[in-house]
Simulated scan of single mutants.
Amino acid sequence: MPRRMNPLRRYTAVASVAALAFTLAACGSGKKNADNLGSISAIPAKDRKPFPELSGTTLDGTKLDLSAYKGKVVVMNLWASWCDACQAESRYLESTYEAYKDKGVQFVGIDARDNAGQGQAFVKDQQITYPSLVDGDDGSLLTKLVGITSLAALPSTLIIDKNGDLAWRALRGIDSSELSAALAPVVAES
C-alpha cells in the first residue's frame, strides 16, 4: 500500500516547486523553451492579428488608453523593477524612444509584478520618460496578453503597427540596434 504524504509536507513541496519555477521563468534567461522565451519574431503584415485594447492607470496616476495612439506605431515593453534584464535594457529603450518619438512612434511600458512605489523608483532611477501602465495585483493587463507574449517573460517588447496589429515581439531583453532594426520597416509601412 503506498504511503500518503502529510498534507502540510505536500503543500510545502508544491509551493516550493511553484516558487522555483516562477523565479526561474519570471525574468527571462535568454534561452528558448516551450514558451519561446528568448525568441524574437517579426510577423508578416498578412499574418498580423489585432492587439487587444488596453487601458489603465500610469505610474504617475494618469489614465492611459492605447486607443489614443491609433495611427501610430506603439512599442510596448513589459518590465519589473527587480528584473536584472529589464534594468539592463531600459537605457536602450529610452534612447530608442528619444530617436523615434518624432517619427510617429509611441512607447508605453507595463510595470508588472511591482507595487507603485517600486515602479516609480525604477522609472526615476532609469530616467524613463515614456508612460508606464501599472498592472497591479490583479494582473488584468497581462491576462489580456495571453497568447501574444509569454506571461513568464520579463522583459518582453512588442511592436504594434499603425493599424493596431502585433507586428513584432521579443521575449527577452533587447538593445537599441535590435529595436531600431525592427522598428524601421514597421514605421515605413503605409
Results as ranks from 00 to 15, higher is better:
residue 24 L to Y: 08
residue 58 T to Y: 02
residue 39 S to F: 04
residue 189 E to S: 09
residue 98 E to S: 10
residue 91 R to H: 10
residue 183 L to V: 03
residue 109 G to V: 06
residue 182 A to F: 04
residue 154 L to I: 13
residue 79 W to K: 08
residue 48 R to L: 08
residue 9 R to A: 13
residue 36 N to D: 13
residue 158 L to S: 02
residue 33 N to K: 00
residue 113 R to Q: 14
residue 77 N to C: 04
residue 60 D to A: 13
residue 113 R to L: 12
residue 55 S to Y: 14
residue 137 D to F: 11
residue 127 Q to V: 07
residue 79 W to F: 14
residue 47 D to F: 08
residue 175 D to Q: 08
residue 63 K to Y: 09
residue 64 L to N: 08
residue 31 K to P: 01
residue 178 E to M: 13
residue 31 K to D: 11
residue 152 A to H: 09
residue 135 D to E: 03
residue 53 E to N: 14
residue 19 A to W: 01
residue 155 P to H: 03
residue 3 R to C: 00
residue 124 K to F: 01
residue 136 G to H: 03
residue 160 I to H: 05
residue 143 T to S: 14
residue 187 V to P: 00
residue 104 G to N: 09
residue 113 R to M: 11
residue 70 K to W: 09
residue 155 P to K: 06
residue 11 Y to L: 15
residue 78 L to N: 11
residue 89 E to S: 02
residue 158 L to W: 01
residue 73 V to W: 08
residue 29 S to E: 07
residue 174 I to G: 01
residue 16 S to E: 10
residue 172 R to Y: 02
residue 101 K to W: 04
residue 173 G to S: 15
residue 116 A to R: 14
residue 108 V to H: 02
residue 4 R to N: 05
residue 8 L to N: 09
residue 135 D to S: 03
residue 33 N to S: 05
residue 140 S to H: 12
residue 62 T to F: 02
residue 47 D to E: 15
residue 178 E to L: 12
residue 101 K to E: 10
residue 77 N to V: 02
residue 4 R to V: 10
residue 95 S to F: 02
residue 50 P to Q: 10
residue 15 A to K: 03
residue 86 C to A: 07
residue 49 K to I: 13
residue 43 I to T: 11
residue 131 P to Q: 06
residue 35 D to A: 12
residue 145 L to Y: 11
residue 154 L to E: 04
residue 74 V to N: 04
residue 12 T to F: 04
residue 36 N to E: 13
residue 37 L to H: 10
residue 110 I to D: 03
residue 51 F to K: 09
residue 101 K to D: 00
residue 83 C to W: 07
residue 178 E to Y: 01
residue 125 D to G: 05
residue 70 K to Y: 06
residue 184 A to P: 01
residue 101 K to Q: 15
residue 22 F to Q: 06
residue 117 G to D: 15
residue 7 P to Y: 04
residue 82 W to V: 08
residue 50 P to E: 10
residue 18 A to Q: 13
residue 97 Y to P: 02
residue 84 D to W: 00
residue 141 L to I: 15
residue 106 Q to A: 14
residue 69 Y to I: 10
residue 181 A to Q: 10
residue 60 D to N: 15
residue 180 S to Y: 00
residue 56 G to L: 05
residue 116 A to C: 00
residue 157 T to R: 05
residue 87 Q to M: 12
residue 155 P to Y: 07
residue 184 A to D: 14
residue 73 V to Y: 09
residue 106 Q to F: 03
residue 2 P to F: 09
residue 142 L to A: 14
residue 37 L to R: 10
residue 123 V to T: 06
residue 79 W to L: 10
residue 176 S to G: 10
residue 30 G to E: 05
residue 43 I to Y: 01
residue 19 A to F: 05
residue 31 K to C: 00
residue 63 K to H: 14
residue 161 D to L: 12
residue 9 R to V: 13
residue 174 I to Y: 04
residue 167 A to H: 05
residue 123 V to I: 14
residue 154 L to F: 15
residue 57 T to I: 15
residue 114 D to K: 09
residue 89 E to F: 03
residue 161 D to E: 07
residue 6 N to S: 13
residue 26 A to M: 07
residue 185 P to I: 07
residue 57 T to A: 13
residue 120 Q to H: 00
residue 161 D to Q: 12
residue 162 K to Q: 11
residue 94 E to S: 05
residue 20 L to R: 08
residue 19 A to R: 09
residue 6 N to D: 15
residue 141 L to W: 02
residue 119 G to Y: 00
residue 149 T to H: 09
residue 139 G to S: 10
residue 2 P to G: 07
residue 96 T to L: 05
residue 134 V to H: 08
residue 37 L to W: 01
residue 3 R to Q: 12
residue 152 A to P: 00
residue 187 V to I: 12
residue 128 I to D: 01
